[in-house]
Design a protein around this nucleic acid. Structure first.
Length: 552
RNA sequence: UGGGGUAUAGCCAAGUGGUAAGGCAGCGGGUUUUGAUCCCGCCAUUCGUUGGUUCGAGUCCAGCUACCCCAGCCA
């Protein structure tokens, strides 16, 4: 019973279960088919987790296939980054990477088959003429004057197209279906166009390239894809998908099923907007930690497991949806809470001088690397007469709800002693510059012997031994929940990046790039690759849940 | 009266004729040398809406409404 509770169920799984049960299929073969014209983002991750996840759960296989039919927009750099991201997410594709371009020769033959059957023709109409003849959503289109060219003539013409005897745009190959169909994609769709473009896989071998609708279904059939999953906007295209498979000598009959794409609040996922963010320098690049790209999330400190968990939690349906950011944040917090070691770092330092602590003395205090996991061991932290604490952890006056350091009151320094604030120095503006304290030497690792209660615990770093680090605090990139219809300049959050100079415990000098660490009471962070030598840079992945701040 | 889709809590999402799972967020309380974690409890008499069928409807039927997608030689 308990085992079935965690297992995800969704309409795709129900279809697969039924297909397996009634013998439609005896195995599951899926595919993830990105076009290599951009970086993968969290929306792609949903598709990746679905396709590869299904293959894993049903002991089937998932292909990685680059849908590379538009050489003008595609680039080998993108295929490399996509492969890297899929692997990083924790998935392994079946056999070798596939490319739609692997099938160009077969696609060309299938196009000839359609021509021979009188189901495709070469059209010399201009693009404007074609648009006019297509009709509108409420009015049927008109047949092209080239629609009744004989199969023999079309065969010759198509061969000439391939031979480069026509100019780009001069003609194209169209499927002959139905100019009055209520599905616009069935009004004699273009299936081949001329492009004298260099292709990253096939070089200059071809000057004609097949269109998506013709390519995708045939590629699926060739690869023996059983369940071809794509997003909702392809629902109409399914009619064309099925038409092509029915009208060629397809080696298999794959079926397409559509699910809703991911939308994230305060985030854009459209390729166009993402490119704009990079090109207009709203962010530092595709892997800027504020970007919803897989590369950005990785640099931000998100783990593959947390992204997989997120995709699990949001489910798979056909409903339009906008996922709240808290859902993603919850996933990374859950992961890092159990897996990240703890450390202390002071982001906005104010100095504390412990006047009754011996000058020049340095103690090495032991601290647990994880409060709930002894196996993670301990580390030493230097303690001395002068330490830094967070500015916001001190107040001259405060009510009992403020469980931190107050003038005249006590607080515990995490992993160290109880101290009491005795007096302060202030500057001309009245701002506190230094806090003078005394400490209770009998409170290391235990409560005060006289039974007095010390409620608060704050973190600290020894002034002399602490090291400086640049800390990048990220906030949402957009200030509006749905930035999609809005000008970027209007929607962008001007405070999405705050850089502070922090003092961190010396152990952090040995932090590894990308490995998460919790700065206690503050959040989860990881060392950024911008770090060089002694110049430490940390990214805040996500803050700790903060009910106190929420309540105030 | 173009077609294709979708409506269950603030956000996701189970539910497949037998009396509304779960997660996120939120709200109480307990533990705590992280205002974290953890633990307990609360959070839809009602499923877009109006009718109908039925002993019984979120599930079946009919009408209505709202929202999304489609008129690239993009995918």
């Amino acid at each position: 019973m308990a085992e079935t509770e965690n297992r995800p169920t969704n309409f795709v799984r129900q279809i697969i279960d039924k297909d397996l049960q009634d013998g439609t299929h005896d195995h599951v073969q899926t595919r993830f088919p990105p076009e290599p014209n951009g970086y993968l983002h969290i929306g792609h991750a949903k598709s990746i987790c679905l396709n590869f996840g299904l293959a894993e759960d049903y002991q089937g296989a998932c292909n990685l296939r680059f849908d590379d039919t538009n050489p003008e927009k595609e680039d080998i750099d993108y295929v490399n980054s996509i492969k890297e991201d899929v692997n990083w997410l924790g998935f392994t594709w079946h056999e070798d990477v596939r490319y739609s371009s692997n099938y160009f020769p077969k696609l060309y033959e299938f196009a000839h088959e359609l021509i021979t059957k009188g189901l495709a023709y070469v059209d010399f109409s201009s693009q404007e003429e074609m648009r006019e003849m297509r009709g509108t959503l409420t009015q049927p289109g008109k047949n092209s004057p080239y629609r009744d060219t004989t199969p023999e003539e079309n065969t010759t013409l198509f061969e000439k197209m391939k031979a480069g005897e026509f100019k780009e745009g001069e003609c194209c190959l169209r499927a002959k279906i139905d100019m009055s169909s209520s599905f616009m994609c069935m009004r004699d769709p273009v299936i081949y166009r001329i492009k004298f473009a260099h292709h990253h896989q096939t070089g200059d071998e071809w000057c004609i390239y097949p269109m998506y609708d013709f390519t995708h279904c045939i590629s699926d059939a060739i690869e023996g894809i059983t369940h071809s999953l794509c997003t909702l906007e392809f629902q109409d295209n399914r009619r064309l998908y099925d038409w092509v498979i029915e009208n060629i000598s397809a080696p298999a009959v794959p079926r397409q099923y559509e699910f809703s794409r991911l939308n994230l609040a305060y985030t854009v996922l459209s390729k166009r907007k993402l490119i704009q963010l990079v090109e207009e320098n709203y962010v530092a690049g595709w892997d800027d930690p504020r970007m919803p790209t897989v590369a950005g999330l990785r640099r931000r400190g998100y783990t593959p497991a947390s992204i997989r968990e997120f995709c699990q939690r949001i489910g798979v349906t056909k409903m339009d949806n906008v996922i709240e950011v808290s859902n993603l944040e919850g996933c990374i917090r859950d992961d890092l809470n159990v897996n990240a070691n703890r450390a202390m770092a002071v982001l906005n330092p104010i100095k504390v001088i412990i006047e009754n602590y011996p000058e020049g003395q340095v103690e090495q205090l032991s601290a647990a690397n994880h409060p709930n996991d002894e196996s993670k061991g301990t580390r030493n932290i230097p303690f001395s007469r002068e330490v830094y604490i967070e500015k916001e952890d001190f107040r001259v006056e405060a009510n009992k709800k403020f469980k931190r350091l107050v003038l005249g009151k006590e607080v515990r320094l995490r992993n160290a002693y109880v101290i009491k604030a005795e007096r302060v120095d202030t500057d001309e503006q009245g701002e506190v510059t230094t806090i003078y304290c005394t400490y209770d030497s009998e409170t290391l690792g235990c409560d005060p012997a006289d039974g007095r209660k010390v409620k608060g615990v704050i973190h600290w770093v020894s002034a002399a031994e602490g090291i400086e680090a640049e800390v990048r605090l990220y906030d949402r990139l957009f200030k509006v929940e749905n930035p999609n219809g809005v000008e970027l300049s209007e929607a962008i959050n001007p405070d999405s990046l705050e850089v502070v100079n922090a003092i961190v415990e010396p152990n952090l000098a040995n932090a590894e790039v990308g490995v998460a660490v919790q700065f206690e009471r503050t959040g989860y962070f990881c060392k950024d690759p911008d770090s060089e030598g002694d110049n430490l840079v940390f990214n805040r992945t996500v803050g700790l849940r903060d009910t106190w701040a929420n309540a105030n």
